[in-house]
C-alpha cells in the first residue's frame, strides 16, 4: 500500500513539475511574441534619436488611429513622444498639451512635467511654468531634488522674482556635472539683473533736448547719438540762417525750421523711448541665456 502511495505521490509530483514547465514555456512564448505597440514605440524612439520628427509624428498618429490594444502605460509613452516631437519641432503649445496628458503612474511623468515647464517658460508663460514645477511632488525622487531646485531657480529668475531666486540659489551645490556650470551661470545672470541701473526716460529726453542724441548715449546706445547729432545740428544751423536772413514768417524759415523741429522733437522722443527699448533688449538676451541654461541640463538629465 505504501508503495502505491509512493508511486501516486511521485506521479502527482511529476505532474506538478510538468505543469510548472508548461507554465514556464507558456510565459516564454508570451515574452517572445512581440507586442506591436511596444515595437512601434521603439521605432518612434529611433526616429526621434535620428531627428526624423515628421516620420515619428506620423507613426504616433497612426498608432492611435489603428485599432490596436494599447495599455495605459503605452498611451503615456505615446503622449510623451508626441510631446517630445512637438517640442523638437518648436510647436510648444501642442507639446504642452501632450506632456500634460502623461499620467502619474509612469516613469515618464517627471520627464514630461519638466519638459512642459520648459515649454511654458519658452513661450514666456513663466507663471504656468512655475505652477507646473511647484505642483510636482518629488518627495519620493531624491535624485531629482537638486535638479528640481535648479529648474525652480531658473523660472524665478525669468519671473524676475529675485528674493525667491536667492532662496533657491542658496541651495545650489555645484556638484552635479549635468548642471553645475549652469548653476554658476545663473548666479552671473542674477548679478547682471540686480546690478542693472535704473535709467530715467525723462532724463534721457532732457539730455537730448540740450545736446541732440546724447540721451541715447545715456540710455546705453553708444554709437547712435553721433548720427542724430550730425543730422540735427546742420538743420539747426540752416534754421538759424533762414531766420536771420528771411525772418520769422519767411517761407524758407517756415519750411526748414519745421524740418529741424521735426528732427529735434523726434530725437527727444526717441531718446525717452530708448531707455525702455535697451532695457527690453538686455532682458531679452538674459532670458534667452537663462532658457538655454535651463534647457541643456534638462536634456542631459532625461536623455
Amino acid at each position: 500500500m505504501r508503495i502505491v502511495h509512493l508511486f501516486a505521490g511521485l506521479f502527482f509530483l511529476n505532474s506538478l513539475i510538468a505543469q510548472d514547465f508548461r507554465t514556464d514555456s507558456a510565459l516564454v512564448d508570451v515574452q517572445t511574441i512581440k507586442n506591436p505597440v511596444t515595437e512601434e514605440l521603439k521605432f518612434v524612439n529611433y526616429l526621434i534619436t535620428n531627428s526624423q520628427y515628421n516620420d515619428a509624428l506620423f507613426v504616433l498618429e497612426k498608432l492611435q488611429e489603428d485599432n490596436l490594444q494599447i495599455s495605459s502605460s503605452q498611451f503615456d509613452s505615446i503622449y510623451f513622444y508626441t510631446g517630445w516631437v512637438n517640442y523638437f519641432n518648436k510647436r510648444f503649445g501642442k507639446a504642452i498639451t501632450s506632456f500634460e496628458k502623461v499620467s502619474k503612474e509612469t516613469d515618464l511623468y517627471y520627464n514630461s512635467r519638466y519638459y512642459a515647464a520648459f515649454c511654458y517658460a519658452y513661450t514666456q508663460n513663466f507663471n504656468a511654468a512655475w505652477d507646473v514645477l511647484t505642483n510636482l511632488d518629488i518627495s519620493q525622487k531624491e535624485e531629482l531634488k537638486e535638479f528640481h531646485n535648479f529648474q525652480l531657480a531658473c523660472v524665478a529668475l525669468l519671473k524676475r522674482d529675485l528674493k525667491i531666486f536667492e532662496e533657491y540659489a542658496a541651495m545650489f551645490k555645484f556638484s552635479n556635472y549635468n548642471y553645475a556650470k549652469e548653476e554658476e551661470q545663473l548666479l552671473t545672470y542674477y548679478k547682471d539683473i540686480s546690478s542693472a541701473k535704473h535709467k530715467s526716460g525723462f532724463l534721457a529726453a532732457l539730455i537730448s533736448a540740450v545736446i541732440p542724441g546724447m540721451g541715447k548715449f545715456y540710455a546705453g546706445y553708444k554709437g547712435l547719438p553721433f548720427g542724430a547729432l550730425f543730422t540735427t545740428l546742420p538743420l539747426a544751423a540752416v534754421a538759424v540762417e533762414t531766420f536771420i536772413k528771411g525772418g520769422l514768417l519767411s517761407p524758407q524759415f517756415i519750411i526748414l525750421g519745421s524740418l529741424f523741429t521735426v528732427f529735434y522733437i523726434g530725437n527727444i522722443w526717441g531718446s525717452a523711448l530708448s531707455v525702455n527699448a535697451i532695457k527690453k533688449e538686455i532682458y531679452a538676451e538674459i532670458n534667452y541665456n537663462i532658457l538655454f541654461d535651463m534647457h541643456i541640463p534638462l536634456r542631459r538629465t532625461f536623455e
Partner: peptide, 13 residues
C-alpha cells in the same frame, strides 16, 4: 542766393 549754411547743408546732403 547767399544762403551759405543752407546751401552747403542741402547741397552736401
Amino acid at each position: 542766393a547767399k544762403y551759405y549754411v543752407t546751401g552747403f547743408v542741402l547741397g552736401y546732403g
